[in-house]
Design a protein around this nucleic acid. Structure first.
Lengths: 165, 165
DNA sequence: CTATGGCTTTGAGCGCGCGCGAACGCAAAC
DNA sequence: GTTTGCGTTCGCGCGCGCTCAAAGCCATAG
């Protein structure tokens, strides 16, 4: 279990086409099973990223991380939750620049809630469009796979070589 | 219509959650409404890419393009179809390297059909996984949006600032 | 009690995938 | 004639993260 990242666990939980209930979302963010103060290696393992990337995020101002008496980073659950959020946003295509902006809004206090909401709404639309694009590409790919398989006639042979689709 | 790319047209055709029938796929690849020999600008417009990128693909060995007596590129429907295919694969995440390999297989003749099929199957799985990832991120984003909106209680307020999710 | 290996720290620099920009010339079209 | 659009080449730029180097602390092993 230690080597699984959150997304992998989530996908296993959900299955190929299961419903995405609120409960699933909750389970996703249920971090009770991880130790409270985490090392950089543990967090990296949890989020399926390298320590390098975590330090990179920190330099980029996305998180602040406390240190122990040896200067080693100590991640509390608060920070880990933020990193989970950030990772998810990155994975769904939000650029670093936008993440930095979002975090700056969070740090700026409650007045920025509307703007944060706007960012989330816009990002939601981007994800939706991306899903539609991919669904289309998936359909096209499956179509091509199907015609490849059943290629017997001249037309189908043409499809093969002619790179139709 | 000239400024629309294929994907945009396709998405408009499909709508937000319509079924992806074979007919839709056919309509997608119905290039009858484009002139037979196309210039680089026309193809770029059709595929929503720049002439630069088209020349780049050509240099990369993905297509061979004939020239007219002025040295200008002349794209026949065959080449355009290949470019449509390549663009779709790129958009759905296939790296240039794999596209180059695929094209080399196409050029190598019918013996490579099984390997091409393998590539397509693998790519199909990648797209599927990507869609599931995005679906999950979408659900998480929508969940966060919902909690942002209805933040009245103390727990919800904590969600706001604590970057939960 | 060293030592060997394994983790951490910082900083600077590199690399990849993908494509764009700039500079320049030539032919056609207004 | 000047503007437009295409041609080529060289090099750059971006986003993102990794590599490399030099050094410190800890634990287990001899």
């Amino acid at each position: 279990m230690a080597t699984d990242d959150l997304m992998t666990r989530a996908l296993e939980t959900v299955g190929d086409d299961g419903p995405l209930s609120v409960e699933v979302i909750h389970r996703l963010t249920d971090l009770a099973d991880v130790p409270e103060p985490m090392t950089i290696a543990e967090v990296a393992d949890l989020l399926d990223m390298t320590p390098h990337t975590l330090r990179y995020y920190e330099r980029a101002g996305l998180v602040e991380v406390a240190r122990d008496r040896y200067g080693h980073r100590v991640y509390d659950s608060e920070t880990v939750r933020r990193l989970v959020f950030l990772t998810r946003m990155r994975l769904s295509g939000m650029p670093m620049r936008d993440l930095q902006h979002y975090i700056s809004l969070v740090d700026a206090g409650q007045d920025t809630v509307p703007e944060r909401l706007d960012m989330l709404l816009e990002h939601r639309d981007i994800i939706r469009r991306r899903i539609r694009e991919l669904t289309l590409s998936l359909a096209a790919t499956e179509y091509k796979i199907a015609t490849y398989g059943g290629s017997t006639g001249p037309d189908d042979a043409a499809l093969d070589t002619a790179t139709e689709l």
